[in-house]
Structure formats: C-alpha cells, structure tokens
Design a protein around this nucleic acid. Sequence first.
DNA 1: TCATTGATTTCA
DNA 2: GAAATCAATGAT
Length: 174
Amino acid sequence: MRGLKTEDRLSVDFFQRDVLEVAPALLGKQINLVCSDNSIRKFTINEVEAYRGEEDLACHASKGCTDRTKVMYRRGGCLYIYLIYGLYRMINIVTGPEGHPQAVLIRGLEEVSGPGRVSRLLGITKDYNGEELTLSSRIWITNGPDDVNYLTATRVGVEYAGEIWKNKLWRFYY
DNA sequence: TCATTGATTTCA
DNA sequence: GAAATCAATGAT
C-alpha cells in the first residue's frame, strides 16, 4: 500500500509563508543532512523560535539590511547562520517573500536541546549561510510521520528587546 | 581603529 | 553565579 509521501522535500511554497505560520509547521519536520561518509542522517525538529521583520527588536533585521542580515531579506527557504558569544552557531531558516526579513531559529531536535548544541551535532558552519534548502544536495527538510500538537512560550535571551517584543509567544515546542 | 555586545553552554 | 570567546556593529 502506498503510504503518505513523507519523504518529499519541502519546497519554496512551504517556506515563503509568514514566519508565524512556518515556525510551528516546522515542528516534527526532519532535517536531512548528508554526512562526510555520504550517508544521510535525519533529525527531527522539536523546538523553534520566530523572528519577524525590522520592527521586531529581537530580530537582527531590526538593524536593517547589513552584511550579516542580508540573507534574511532573501526569499524563504535558505539558511541564516551566525556566530553568537564567539562560541556557538545558530541555525535559522529564512521564511516569507523576498524583501521581508524573517527567520526561524532551530532551538532543539529530538536528539538534542539548545540551539548551540544543535549546530554542533549537525556540524553546521558558516559555509552553510545562504544554503538553499529547496535546492541543496547536502541539506534539506522533509515531512515527519505525524502532525504535532505544540505549546508556545516567550523567546529566550531577548530581554533587551523591550516590553512588546520580549513578551511575544513566538517560541514553539512540543 | 577601538569598544561593546550578544537568538549560549558549561562548570562551580 | 560567572567564564569562555569573537565577529558584527556602532562610535570615535
């Protein structure tokens, strides 16, 4: 019997929606990563955060389009990778249409908790910055086996962003 | 060119 | 509670 098409790579249509739609929709989806030995490993996303537009003071794009943030202004579907605290690389998935800076931070997988540990486990470095998940031959996203019920919470580490933005329930997890 | 600052993790 | 550690950003 033919099952659900769980192995299909997510396409541009999925990522071009608003970040507040895409972020919870990514829960339960799987990151497919080609390792150095050519095998494909799958990691299931279970915690994410949404960063949305120049007006969101917690979003790096609140500083405008700079060398660092320009990838967030691209069409949804590519990666935004940056170094934080000189130690950890954060993995973000750009969403929305071109010119609308948004991204989803991958905070946790079923295999590991914490955004810094996620990138360490996956071996993601800055040369993945701008990588197109819809085209890449080394990393892409596929549907998980099930839809997921999720909870929301405030984002982590954004106390500086002011009352309005630090209190947004833009963290999604299960 | 110089100083400040983090979407964090880890250890005490 | 505090250290580790550095590129981007903004001020000088």
